[in-house]
């Protein structure tokens, strides 16, 4: 089984985990990407939402599971064929929710380009944006090293 281990800077990442946990709690009852189909049967739509929320919650639990005792003692997280897909999806969900909850003042063009001077942001916005970048980095690592595992599963 292909596995990658990444050593993270504990003092940088640990403070971001509170933000991720809080957003994860908020996503327990909210879809990160609301259903845009207008003409779905209401009962059918409710069943979709239930199933999507169940999957989304499972993904976020897997993401948060990365930050276990080994992370807090060694700063190491590990990705493999078993967790790559749920984690890459959880990162997408939390990033979408970060935009919804915190990052809209930055504007979508700025968010897409990522061209922001962190020192100009106030503390809550800076922390949210660092979290946004951190989760993107995890996604890029997984896509770069474990995409074949995801495509083959």
């Amino acid at each position: 089984m292909k596995r990658i281990e990444v050593k993270l800077a504990l003092p940088v990442v640990a403070p971001l985990l509170d933000v991720i946990k809080m957003l994860g709690d908020s996503l327990r009852s909210n879809l990160a990407a609301p259903i845009a189909l207008q003409d779905l049967d209401p009962d059918f739509k409710a069943a979709w939402v239930d199933e999507l929320l169940l999957a989304q919650n499972g993904e976020i639990t897997t993401l948060l599971g990365l930050f276990d005792d080994e992370f807090f003692s060694e700063g190491i997280v590990a990705f493999d064929e078993g967790n790559a897909e749920p984690i890459v999806r959880a990162c997408a969900a939390v990033r979408l929710h970060l935009r919804e909850r915190y990052l809209k003042p930055l504007g979508d063009e700025t968010l897409e380009s990522g061209d922001i001077d962190l020192v100009t942001l106030d503390e809550p916005l800076r922390k949210a944006f660092m979290c946004y970048l951190f989760l993107a980095t995890i996604q890029e690592l997984i896509i770069q090293h474990l995409d074949e595992s995801i495509l083959g599963s």
Binding site: R95, I150, L151
Partner: peptide
Amino acid sequence: VLNDPVNLMSYVVLVFKK
């Protein structure tokens, strides 16, 4: 599929392939 300003290009490519 509609655009969003959040999801990475590499992620969208992965999803389309998958």
